[in-house]
Design a protein around this nucleic acid. Structure first.
Lengths: 222, 222
DNA sequence: CCGGGCGCTGAACAGACGTTTAGGATATTG
DNA sequence: CAATATCCTAAACGTCTGTTCAGCGCCCGG
């Protein structure tokens, strides 16, 4: 279980500070709603220095995007290795079944701005967000294929669609975590909330949620 | 199967036009990224008229929010009645199982800006979005209780969590529809894409996705 | 000792934004 | 017909935005 920042030295340079502060503010309120002066103030530097280091506000946005994307790449890589290796073991089966959502949540320290930034990234239609999603979809599909081969996943007639279904469901829990906590009382950031959630997920994915009243397929376009 | 706008007369007043145009632009790019001048231009009026009718840009935003929320209230009401009545019939079982997601999608004409606006509403942490989510969660929980009582849904030990799980999964398709279409090639706005999606959803919910390797529960906090 | 990068700042600039104000056009009312 | 209210606009205002520019202090090679 590696951390998400493997090789990056702990640089406390002004440039890195600005990028990190910007990440937090962008995640919280969206890049457009945050001013350069605000970032500079929070980082303890002058507004001009922000532009000096990143060229423009959009340059800073791109730098933050890239840093976040790199973090996600690391997670995907780590998850890919662990998942593919563990798929053939009994523990791997359990881990694989709930891997995407839970491993994702476990990859960040509590209070990390990354999930919030991911929300903005996917919402805004940013190409970086699409790239991350594509990477995850790829991983999800490969993982599902391995789980099917290992006899853990029940084969589906439309594997891409099923991989997408499972991926999107996991992501939704991350995207709607605030509402889930405030409205449903299920805080995924606490062990208790995560445990309740995981229990339902594994139960539904293992045994289904509804009793099929009719195994025949009769759904035309109605 | 009623439309989502039951009683509102087809008013083409300038005020209604502005609100509708704003809804489209807000859904597409977010309220903060759209200027008053832009809305006025698209509606064929002067910028001053926008402020004259709605007081301020934020007033317009609130009016759009309220209109969208009212539309969702109608949908929830219609869905609630239909769901609660149909839960006891065979057809109702099938309809109930896939109701939330599909009935939602069927409630809007193709090209409607409402789903896009909902995306913004839920992912941006807007209080209106939270209110809509809370309303849906309430409906989801009640519906699940009825489906359990009717023997259609397999009872869960934690009904609120399960209702939340199913609701979030249905919402996931809406929230990530753009990525689903561009990356996975599953466009939920087309009958074909929706059919592929629904087939996977009903299959997973009816028969599960993974073979439980061990029916015992041994998941501590690891 | 000293000259040139380098990191950094204060002050200013042009543009865009939301908003206000004064008033024109058209219909309704006495 | 005059008066009034309603709907709407052109032009301007003050503010805030991202960005630029000239220059400060500091370390480092000669």
């Amino acid at each position: 279980m590696r951390s998400a920042t493997p090789a990056r030295p702990p640089d406390l340079t002004a440039k890195a500070t600005i990028r990190e502060v910007a990440l937090g503010l962008f995640a919280e309120r969206g890049a457009d709603a945050v001013t350069v002066r605000e970032i500079a103030g929070a980082a303890g530097v002058s507004p001009a220095l922000v532009l000096h280091h990143f060229g423009s506000k959009d340059g800073l946005r791109a730098a933050v995007d890239e840093a976040v994307a790199a973090t996600f790449e690391d997670i995907v890589d780590a998850l890919g290795e662990a998942g593919l290796e563990g798929a053939l073991t009994d523990e791997g089966a359990e881990a694989g079944a709930r891997s995407l959502g839970e491993a994702f949540a476990a990859s960040f320290p509590p209070g990390s701005p990354i999930p919030g930034y991911l929300r903005r990234l996917l919402l805004s239609g940013d190409p970086t967000g699409d790239r991350i999603f594509a990477r995850w979809f790829e991983l999800s599909e490969r993982l599902l294929a391995d789980l099917e081969a290992a006899g853990v996943a029940r084969p589906s007639g439309d594997r891409p669609a099923r991989a997408a279904f499972l991926l999107v469901n996991d992501l939704a829990a991350v995207l709607l975590a605030p509402q889930l906590a405030s409205t449903c009382g299920i805080d995924l950031l606490t062990p208790d909330g995560m445990s309740r959630w995981a229990e339902e997920a594994t139960d539904v994915y293992a045994r289904g949620a509804f009793r099929a009243p009719d195994p025949e397929e009769g759904s035309a376009d109605e």
